[in-house]
Design a protein around this nucleic acid. Structure first.
Length: 620
DNA sequence: GCCGTTTTCGGCCCGACTGTTTTCAGTCG
């Protein structure tokens, strides 16, 4: 009885649960970690792991080997993993819940289960209130108090209480600016952590500061109006909480250590772990306190991040890439490596293995990431004709002020269905209006476009005779999200094959922290986009950032060009292009990978219509 | 359990903090 194909997140959850169960069972930590690493890899995969596994290709994913591949297949075929089933009979579900309480882990959960038979958070609470926990060797009164506090606070949020990046940046910048104002005179402070890496949503704010007067900085933090409470155990760190409950982690070091500190607290955890593994092989110990040589004993204190990477013979890595997704291989300095490599021959042999070909192809080739200043125009925005709040003139003027050379006006199409649709007649009038305003603007091209709905059968909701009059067509799914993967894929591929469609808007439909993407075979979509010369969008709306980074990376690797858009509904949100660029950077995209880093004429020349007809932009 | 500058076996990152300890284990980031 083949189960319906599971989502990547469901497969990842199952492996994480198995890891938790093995941990309770007392497995060596590396085995547990192996399941968690595999789960992360599966969660990040842009393509369906179920499909991949059924094709016998699961091991193409990093961290998935023979054993885990077998477990994935068992899960797909039978709906469960036999090993998990067996362990679940031995360890009640409540035990895993206990391991999620702050301050408690697998070891203590197991200890309490073995000694006192505690098998749920409820039983744990009762035992703690009865003073029974102290009887266990190694546990005391303070532990008991902590358990009660933890039960009160409830289980750790599992990643669903994250704050979208713009709000997090706003709070972080406001705190940084207040500390610069009220902190010590020599203060040098920066935002680090996941915000600096440009992730979509964050659970806390990491700040790193260097100063010779840490005490003064700590008292300044405690007095900030944004801060509700602060706890600090030393002069090197403090954890504050904003009134909205956002944790603020502040790390402090002397100025000589700024590079080490910033590198360490920018992360990610996976990047740092991999970095330290490389260091160990060189006989070096890397930490926030500097780089220590095993033999010499002398510690290199790094004032800049470049010094940290340099010591490991790596080039400086842009924060957006620090996710342990191949950046350390790509950052390896080539000439240095050859000279000092101990096993050059073996390495050449390894490169002949096709599984290594991709990695070595990227070796020494850190991409020159696309930047916001490279964007020459925005190709997705709305006006009062649909659900925007500004006029065409206002949007165009702001786009021009931003330094763009072009802007496409792309209001929603006829069946948008929220009372703000644009009928075919209205669209014709809108085209006229756009042409008129365009003729009055100097050094700027205003394009008549539309964000056309893709109907369930893949057709578009304007006729071809109207679409052909448009300079630019974004096709997007806004309705009927709950189709099967094959139906949705067929629907989008049909739209991609339409000769007038230039780009697919927010291709996965996900809303960060709110809505899962719809079912889709991304490989088929990428194949169709490549075959037809259709672009895929990276929508810059901060709750979309769609395509997501791993999908965008897969698309560009296949050769598909991406378009970064703001999807602005008012002049100010044209600035949302920033979040799209961040996603593109996290996807390793260069200027060349992004179509709208080109002039309008150049862009029009490489798109489907330009390619197939050899026609210039307007004369379609 | 995965994986390879240690390459098919034997490793697998670092430090702070906490609470309970006379030297360390567990948890966390």
């Amino acid at each position: 009885m083949a189960a319906a194909d599971l989502h990547n997140s469901a497969i990842a959850d199952a492996l994480e649960e198995l890891g938790d169960l093995y941990e309770l069972d007392g497995a060596v930590v590396h085995r547990v970690l192996a399941y968690r690493n595999a789960a992360r890899s599966i969660r990040e995969s842009p393509v369906s792991v179920a499909t991949l596994a059924r094709q016998g290709r699961a091991r193409e994913l990093p961290k998935v080997g023979e054993t885990i591949e077998g477990k994935i297949l068992a899960l797909l075929d039978t709906g469960d993993i036999p090993a998990a089933k067996k362990l679940r009979e031995r360890f009640p579900a409540g035990l895993i819940e206990i391991t999620r309480l702050p301050g408690l882990g697998a070891k203590r959960a197991r200890l309490l289960y073995d000694e006192l038979g505690i098998d749920s958070p409820q039983a744990l609470g009762a035992a703690a209130r009865g003073g029974k926990l102290q009887a266990v060797k190694g546990l005391g009164a303070k532990f008991e108090q902590r358990v009660l506090g933890a039960l009160e606070a409830g289980p750790r949020p599992r990643g669903n209480e994250r704050l979208l990046l713009p709000q997090a940046i706003e709070m972080a910048e406001s705190i940084v600016s207040s500390l610069r104002q009220h902190g010590p005179a020599d203060l040098d402070i920066e935002i680090a952590g996941s915000i600096r890496r440009g992730v979509e949503a964050v659970k806390d704010v990491d700040l790193v500061a260097v100063t010779e007067s840490p005490q003064q900085l700590l008292s300044a933090l405690a007095k900030l109006e944004q801060i509700e409470s602060v706890s600090s155990a030393s002069l090197t760190a403090a954890r504050g909480l904003t009134h909205s409950g956002l944790p603020i982690d502040l790390r402090i070091a002397p100025p000589k250590l700024k590079g080490s500190l910033l590198q360490h607290f920018t992360g990610s955890a996976a990047h740092n772990a991999a970095l330290r593994e490389i260091a160990v092989k060189e006989g070096l110990d890397v930490s926030e306190h500097g780089i220590e040589d095993d033999r010499g004993g002398e510690t290199i204190r790094c004032e800049t991040e470049t010094q940290v990477y340099d010591a490991l013979r790596l080039s400086w890595i842009p924060p957006e890439l620090r996710e342990h997704r191949g950046e350390l291989v790509a950052a390896r300095l080539k000439g240095e490596r050859e000279g000092r490599s101990r096993t050059g021959k073996r390495e050449r042999q390894a490169r002949e293995d096709p599984r290594d070909a991709e990695a070595s192809g990227e070796e020494g080739r850190l991409p020159r990431l696309v930047a916001e200043r490279d964007i020459k125009g925005d190709l997705h925005c709305h006006t009062i004709a649909s659900d925007g709040v500004a006029t065409i003139e206002d949007m165009a003027a702001t786009a021009k002020e931003r330094g763009y050379a072009y802007l496409a006006i792309t209001d929603h199409s006829a069946t948008h269905g929220f009372g703000n649709d644009v009928s075919p007649d209205e669209l014709l009038r809108q085209i006229e209006r756009v042409r008129e305003i365009d003729s009055q603007m100097e050094g700027f091209t205003l394009l008549a476009g539309s964000e056309v709905n893709i109907l369930p059968d893949g057709s578009l909701d304007y006729g071809d005779e109207i679409l052909q009059q448009l300079d630019w067509v974004v096709a997007s799914v806004h309705t009927f999200f709950r189709m099967s993967s094959s139906e949705m894929t067929k629907r989008i591929v049909t739209a991609i094959e339409h000769p007038c469609v230039d780009v697919i808007g927010h291709p996965t439909g996900r809303k960060i922290e709110k809505r899962e993407p719809y079912e889709l075979d991304l490989e088929a979509v990428i194949e169709a986009a490549l075959r037809t010369g259709t672009f895929l969008e990276i929508n810059g709306a901060p709750d979309r950032r769609d395509l997501p980074e791993m999908h965008a990376r897969a698309a560009s690797r296949a050769g598909v060009k991406l378009v970064i858009d703001s999807d602005a509904h008012r002049p100010a949100t044209l600035a949302n292009i920033r979040w799209g660029v961040l996603t593109a950077r996290r996807a390793w995209l260069t200027k060349d990978d992004v179509a709208n880093t080109r002039t309008w004429d150049e862009l029009a020349g490489i798109r489907k219509r330009g390619r197939s007809h050899g026609l210039s932009a307007r004369s379609y």
